[in-house]
């Protein structure tokens, strides 16, 4: 079976996600995020989290709505430090 990349920023495959769900009995995307760094790259999970949610729902026999999304963390897009620095 060819490897399917789910998280492009952190190079995580569908196989790794399934393995992690089984090994750690994961119930939430937050746990996958902690263990695999899923969604922690520059895209902030916009690409991979919906796919990972579908895999998690399938593997745990839950509805997609039951699979909690991890907290969304600002900034929405990466921003340079000097741009948000307070005035002197």
């Amino acid at each position: 079976m060819p490897m399917k990349i789910v998280c492009r920023c952190e190079d995580i495959t569908e196989e790794e996600i399934i393995e992690t769900i089984k090994k750690y009995n994961c119930q939430t995307l937050n746990e996958l995020k902690q263990i695999l760094r899923l969604g922690m790259g520059p895209c902030q999970g916009r690409t991979c989290l919906p796919i990972a949610a579908r895999i998690l729902a399938r593997e745990t026999g839950k509805n997609i709505e039951e699979v909690m999304p991890p907290a969304s963390r600002p900034p929405l897009v990466p921003v340079a430090i000097y741009m948000v620095s307070e005035d002197e």
Binding site: P75, P78, Y82
Partner: peptide, 11 residues
Amino acid sequence: ILKQVNIMRQW
């Protein structure tokens, strides 16, 4: 030098 580096997340 870090001024040019992008912030990814805060929590």
